[in-house]
Write a protein that binds this DNA or RNA. Structure first.
Lengths: 301, 301
DNA sequence: GCTATAATGTTAGAAAGCTGTCAATTTATG
DNA sequence: CATAAATTGACAGCTTTCTAACATTATAGC
């Protein structure tokens, strides 16, 4: 699990560790030799195809020898071509965007093998993917259901329990009749015995620590309760049982692997539900707040 | 250049030779065995990441043996995993793998008035700022304390209650003696009466809906309990009472304003604590998990 | 509960990919 | 045009990736 050590890229000269593949290639064009220029140009023109290449295929296409490709990669600061590919995978790159300067600055400030800088890249990459999910029709369907269904249950076990709890808690501010499905009773009758077409379920699941989610999903399916599953890439039963399955990116840099991404996705889901419900929510929130104040003796500002 | 020969796929049964990778994988789910389903699901969830994988890495991630991956690819009509990748290239080969490009695409939608696109930019900006916070010495001090103090309490009220709950829940996996401070008892004696120098408090607070946090902070201060405060820019008492104050960026695009950012910051804090504690945590997690299994009748994989 | 069959893992060896050494070629410089 | 330096390719050996044969485990039928 925790063996990864990709933060110390082997760069003899200790130069820019944080530049993107694209930037390195562009930079190299200035000083590169003929063969190297050919390789760099090909790579730049085919960045999207690179992951499919290997030193050999690339050498053949560009018309240079295999070792030259390897050497060129070294001159860019990678140990081998494979490492260049790996970097391609999640590096956000150096394109100018809203926060570009700030991000660049942050990266520059942390030159030598900063775990956080790398981690930040991964998180941004994950965020982009999560937002892409929010554009699918499954997403819209789930949002609509979660906004309109009379009852909503959220469930998650072990490491995902906190997530489910959080989600249920926040959703309660947006709409009534939300609860956390609890294993406390030993069964899940409150969900499974709900009247037909009255309830739906949001299930948080991640591999490794619990299979309760699977059996709950099975039973819910039997009871014809729609399931929105938020999981990682290792779930092998989601396609069969869930109505929508949102797969969060799984990274191996953070201890919590996908939990952070689940939180982001959960928040985005809540936000979408809010948009679906419209401003009436604001009123509800004030009511809830007022109630809270009445019982604790405190009021909002 | 013209060497590709993907039209004569070796398919014993002579079935559909033209289907896309995705379609084949989906089809296979119907008849697949357990191991195969696991592979197919992982592939479907990670189509974008596949080009970077190799049989071995894939097998490791999915939890099957290398030959099983190869055999599965054959059952789909490819000679080997590499051929499946090659096919992928033709089908979605010109889709951007680079997260940066996808982000660019997303941002272009921003100009067309896509709310999500704007929101993504704000979230990325916020994320960068949160990572900046993680570089301060206050952060390190808080992390150290949260890793070593005998008891840790987390608290949050109203909209931040879920956050505190989540944080406490996750932290329990990392270390013992973590609890959520609850308003249920009407006072907070479990925190405030803790022996000197034995407890610390993580407080989530955001403007508007509760002032309980303020009075709890006051009392904790009196009792000499160190406070780590996570809040938004509107908190005007944090500097007086808290030992560390982490201010998450507040945006006005999302309904939840700063809650999403709090979740990110909380996750980052958990991750830092994990790093501080070291790998011993892994053991603890397995123990907790095993206990869970003993009581629910389920075990991890 | 036993046997036959299918599914999956293990091991070992073949194939492909990568790098180091050294020789051939090109380029730079006088 | 000659020579030195840099660049590049060819080949060999090492590593990784993949496959084929066999062993083991799970599943289904009786």
């Amino acid at each position: 699990m925790l063996e990864s050590c990709q933060f110390m890229k082997q760069d003899a000269k200790g130069k820019e560790m944080t530049e993107s593949v694209r930037a390195r290639l562009s930079d190299s064009l200035v000083t590169a030799t003929n063969a190297e220029k050919a390789i760099a140009n090909y790579m730049l023109a085919n960045l999207n195809g690179l992951p499919f290449e290997t030193s050999a295929t690339l050498a053949a296409k560009v018309g240079v020898s295999e070792p030259t490709v390897g050497r060129f990669c070294r001159s860019l600061g990678y140990a081998r071509f494979k490492d260049l590919k790996a970097d391609l995978r999640d590096n956000i790159g150096d394109r100018p965007w809203l926060v570009g300067d700030r991000l660049k600055e942050f990266r520059e400030r942390n030159l030598e093998g900063d775990m956080l800088a790398r981690s930040l890249d991964l998180e941004i990459a994950a965020l982009v993917r999560i937002y892409e999910i929010a554009h699918t029709k499954e997403w819209k369907r789930a949002v609509k259901r979660l906004a309109t269904m009379p009852k909503v249950f959220a469930a998650g076990f072990q490491t995902e329990r906190g997530m489910a709890q959080y989600f249920a808690n926040q959703l309660q501010y947006l709409r009534p009749d939300v609860s956390l499905a609890d294993v406390a009773g030993g069964n899940f009758h409150e969900i499974l015995m709900a009247p037909p077409k009255s309830a739906c379920l949001v299930l948080f699941e991640a591999r490794r620590y619990s299979q309760l989610a699977l059996s709950l999903a099975r039973e819910a399916r039997k009871a014809k309760i729609p399931i929105t599953l938020i999981t990682d890439a290792f779930c092998d039963w989601g396609h069969d049982l869930a109505d929508e399955m949102f797969v969060v990116p799984t990274e191996f840099d953070m201890f919590w692997e996908s939990t952070a991404q689940m939180a982001s996705l959960g928040n985005l889901l809540l936000n979408s539900i809010f948009n679906e419900l419209g401003v009436s929510v604001e009123k509800r929130m004030n009511n809830v707040s007022e109630l809270h104040g009445r019982f604790t003796g405190y009021v909002g500002e």
